[in-house]
Amino acid sequence: MKHVFSVRIGPVGFRVGSDWRAPIRQLAALYAGYPQPEDGVPDFTVRLFAQRPWRRVIRPAVMIGGDFMIPDAAPLPLAQGLLAAEMAMNLQMALGQRRYLLLHASAVERDGRVLLMTGESGSGKSTLAALLSQRGWRLMGDEFALIDPVTGLAHAFPRLVSLKNAAIAVAEAAMPQARFGPLLEGTPKGAIRHLVPDAAAVAAMDMPGKPALLLFPRFGFAPDIRDVAPGEVFMRLTQASTNYVAMGERGFDALTRLVLSIPAQAIDYPDTKHALAQVEALWEAL
């Protein structure tokens, strides 16, 4: 491909090739402090390409491809090329990752212990992880937590934090000194702005942590905290894992071990101030 960018995020190396310069330039700027893939060999390759040759210039639309693809993915306008790259990188992880059990969860670490937060888009897991990273926690990732089936440890995957809609203003106000990507409006998920993880998150990204607490946050409800029993946690995490089935018995062992080793709570919250207080209180009570 004409334009190429390589990066390592946690234990995973990516190579992104593109028909256009702009998305590669944005990736290079936002991932400026990140290392290169181990030995220069990426785990996954991503391609951003034009649907037809002339669509490089006329109403340019970005198709995403790579080692793993979904057949009916719709192209994105070139202005959202950065989002296309991030989506393509996530897709490779979701479909191709076999070394770690992947949980669709954000993760933050303190004193070597890891707080996992899982929930659907809009639950606030990315926002809470970003805000906690300003309050003495290390950001390990906002999208995927990587559970090592051998050790049970959680590995960091601190890609750009994907902030959506109302979460953008919340993060901008809370972190005026942070670096953000361009504001992408009118995407399939509404407005999106990427937040660059802080230098501490990148510097420590090779350091795994021991899972200590699992939360199921839910934004937009009156404050509430309830225990979630292991059977329900197991069921919800099989659904929150993109590679549980593909991992086979290693995935089963990793997940049952995780479920039986850490407490889990569902937290409902009306605003981030409540959520942060709930998180700190539950953490203190461990």
């Binding site: 197991f234 018995e249 049952t256």
Partner: peptide, 18 residues
């Protein structure tokens, strides 16, 4: 089989079918 009691529920992994 791999049989792991969780609480009222028990997780059973069937090796042949995955």
């Amino acid at each position: 089989l791999r049989i792991v009691p969780l609480d009222a529920f028990t997780a059973i992994y069937h090796r042949a079918s995955g």
